[in-house]
Design a protein around this nucleic acid. Structure first.
Length: 440
RNA sequence: GGGGGCGUGGUGUAGUGGCUAACAUGCGGCCCUGUCAAGGCCGAGACCGCGGGUUCGAACCCCGUCGCUCCCGCCA
C-alpha cells in the first residue's frame, strides 16, 4: 500500500491508509492506546482498542518514544479528537526501528531544552524539532529563490576548487593540508577564482560553496567552515551597480520566503518575515562616524575608520529608526582596512569602492569593485608589501582584456540568523564546525 | 591571542559553610471507560567536572586543571 502523508489524511476519510513516521507520544491505557505519529507534514492520532488485539497492544506498550513506525488503519472523522478532528483506527503496525528508552533528551520538550552544545552531540535528534525542519525548508527555498534570480539575470554557476596551492587572500588564517609531497590549503574564499571568470568573459557568475577559515573565533556568529554565497559581475560603473543588484536579489529571495512560509514561520518561530525594502540605505564610513559621534557612541581610538561590533549595532539602531530598514550598506571604507585588490575612489585615493552589508546589526556580506587595471593593481599590491611572485597567477588575469567588475561574498547561515532572528549561528547550520567542534 | 561566566540524577533547574542534596521532566512498575500539555500512586537514578587546599565540617570558600559558553580581536 502506498504511503499517505499526514497532512493529506483529510482527503482519505473512511479509507484504509498507510502512514509512516515517528512515535511522538504514547498514551497507554488499560483498554485504549493512543499513538501520536509525526511525519514531516504533521501529527496524527492513532487509536487502538486493546481487547481486540491484545498481542498488538503488548507490542505498542513496549515502544520507545521516537520509534520509526509504519501504521495501517482506517481514517475516521472524530470531532472529539483535538488534533485535527480525525484519527486513524489501528489495523496493523510495523516497527521499522524501535527507539531505545530513555532518549538522551526529548527534542519536543520545550521546557527542558538542553544547551546547544549537548544538542549538537545528538544533532539528528535535535533536527527532528519543528524549528529545525522548518529552518531547512526556509534555507532550501531561500537558496532556490536566489538561484532563480541569478539564472533569470543571466548568471553562470561556477564551482571553484577548495584545495589551493597558495593562499588566496592575506588576512584570514588558512588550514594547511598534506597534498602528496607538498603543502596545500583549504580555500578561505573563492575570490580570485570568481574574478578569473570575469577575465574569462563569463560576465556574471555565482557560487554557493564551502569556505574554510582557521580563525580561533569563539563567538555566536563564527564557524571554521561555512557556506558562502558569492557573485561577481562585469562591466560595472562602480560598486553602486553591485549594491543595486544585491538589494533587488535579497528583496526577491526574502519575498519568496514570506509568500510561501510566513504563516509557518510565525507559528514555529513566532516572528514575521521582514522583507527589506529597496533601496537599502547607504551610509559612507565618513557619515557613519559622524552619526556615531552624534549619538554618543565612543569608538575605540585605534580603529582608524573601522567599526567595532558595538559601533555596528549602534549604527544599525540608527538606520532602523531613521530609515526603518534592517538592511543597509556601509560604503567607501578607508584603504587601511581593505585588501589591495579593492578599487580606490579616483577623487579620493584613501577610500575604496567597497561595502559591507549589515543586517539586523550583523555583518553578513563584504564586497567591492575590484581593481582590474594591471599596472594599478601591481602598484597597490606592492604598497601592501605583497610579493608579486606569489600572486602572479592572479595578476595575470588582468593582462589580456579583463573588464571592470565587482561582487560580494555573503554568509548563508548569517543570513538565516537574520531572517529567522536566531541568536546563535549554531542554530542556523546543519552541522556546526568550530575550533573545538569536529563531530558529528 | 585577551577577558568574563558556567559545570549538581538522562535532560532542565534549585540549593552559596551544617543535606539523609530538592523540584520538574524523562525512565521503570502498578492503576485509570477515549486519552489528547492525559491523570493518580510507587520506584530507580547525582558521592554536586577533576585534583589539591582552607575548615570541626565544603556542592557552596581558595588555588590549579579540563570542558562548555559569551564578549573583544578577526571576519561572512
Amino acid at each position: 500500500m502506498t504511503r499517505t502523508l499526514i497532512n493529506d489524511l483529510n482527503n482519505h476519510i473512511d479509507e484504509v491508509v498507510t502512514v509512516k513516521g515517528w512515535l511522538q507520544t504514547l498514551r497507554d491505557q488499560k483498554n485504549m492506546q493512543f499513538l501520536i505519529l509525526r511525519d514531516r507534514t504533521g501529527l496524527v492520532q492513532v487509536a487502538h482498542y486493546r481487547p481486540e488485539h491484545p498481542e498488538l497492544g503488548e507490542h505498542i506498550s513496549a515502544l520507545g518514544t521516537e520509534s520509526a513506525l509504519t501504521v495501517t488503519g482506517k481514517v475516521v472523522k472524530n470531532e472529539v479528537v483535538k488534533l485535527g478532528g480525525l484519527e486513524i483506527q489501528l489495523h496493523d503496525l510495523v516497527i521499522e526501528n524501535n527507539a531505545e528508552a530513555p532518549l538522551p533528551y526529548d527534542p519536543f520538550d520545550q521546557e527542558n531544552m538542553p544547551a546547544i552544545d549537548f544538542r549538537m552531540d545528538w544533532r539528528y535528534l535535535d533536527l527532528r524539532r519543528d524549528q529545525n525542519l522548518l529552518l531547512f525548508r526556509v534555507q532550501t527555498l531561500l537558496e532556490h529563490a536566489m538561484r532563480e534570480f541569478w539564472v533569470n539575470e543571466g548568471f553562470i554557476e561556477i564551482h571553484s576548487p577548495k584545495i589551493m596551492g597558495s593562499p588566496s587572500e592575506s588576512g584570514a588564517e588558512l588550514f594547511e593540508i598534506d597534498y602528496f609531497e607538498r603543502k596545500a590549503y583549504l580555500a578561505q574564499s573563492p575570490q580570485f577564482y570568481k574574478q578569473m571568470a570575469m577575465a574569462a568573459g563569463f560576465e556574471r557568475v555565482f557560487e554557493v560553496g564551502p569556505v574554510f577559515r582557521a580563525d580561533p573565533s569563539y563567538t555566536s556568529r563564527h564557524m571554521t567552515e561555512f557556506t558562502g554565497l558569492d557573485i561577481e559581475i562585469s562591466w560595472i560603473e562602480s560598486h553602486e551597480d553591485v549594491l543595486k543588484f544585491t538589494e533587488r536579489w535579497l528583496n526577491y529571495a526574502f519575498q519568496r520566503v514570506k509568500d510561501e512560509l510566513d504563516e509557518e514561520i510565525m507559528k514555529v518561530f513566532g516572528i514575521e518575515v521582514t522583507v527589506p525594502e529597496v533601496p537599502f540605505p547607504r551610509l559612507t564610513m565618513a557619515e557613519t562616524l559622524d552619526v556615531l559621534k552624534k549619538v554618543g557612541y565612543d569608538l575605540p581610538k585605534e580603529r582608524k575608520g573601522d567599526l567595532d561590533p558595538g559601533g555596528e549595532r549602534a549604527i544599525a539602531e540608527y538606520v532602523k529608526n531613521e530609515f526603518n530598514n534592517e538592511f543597509f550598506f556601509l560604503i567607501d571604507w578607508p584603504i587601511t582596512v581593505r585588501p589591495f585588490y579593492h578599487m580606490r575612489h579616483p577623487d579620493n585615493p584613501d577610500l575604496t569602492r567597497s561595502f559591507d552589508l549589515i543586517a539586523g546589526g550583523l555583518e553578513i556580506a563584504t564586497g567591492a569593485q575590484r581593481e582590474h587595471r594591471y599596472e594599478v593593481l601591481k602598484k597597490q599590491a606592492l604598497e601592501y608589501g605583497l610579493g608579486l611572485e606569489s600572486i602572479q597567477f592572479y595578476l595575470d588575469f588582468f593582462r589580456y582584456g579583463c573588464p571592470p567588475h565587482g561582487g560580494f561574498g555573503m554568509g548563508l547561515s548569517r543570513l538565516l540568523m537574520v531572517l529567522l532572528k536566531l541568536p546563535n549561528i549554531r542554530e542556523a547550520v546543519y552541522l556546526f564546525r568550530g575550533p573545538n567542534r569536529l563531530h558529528p
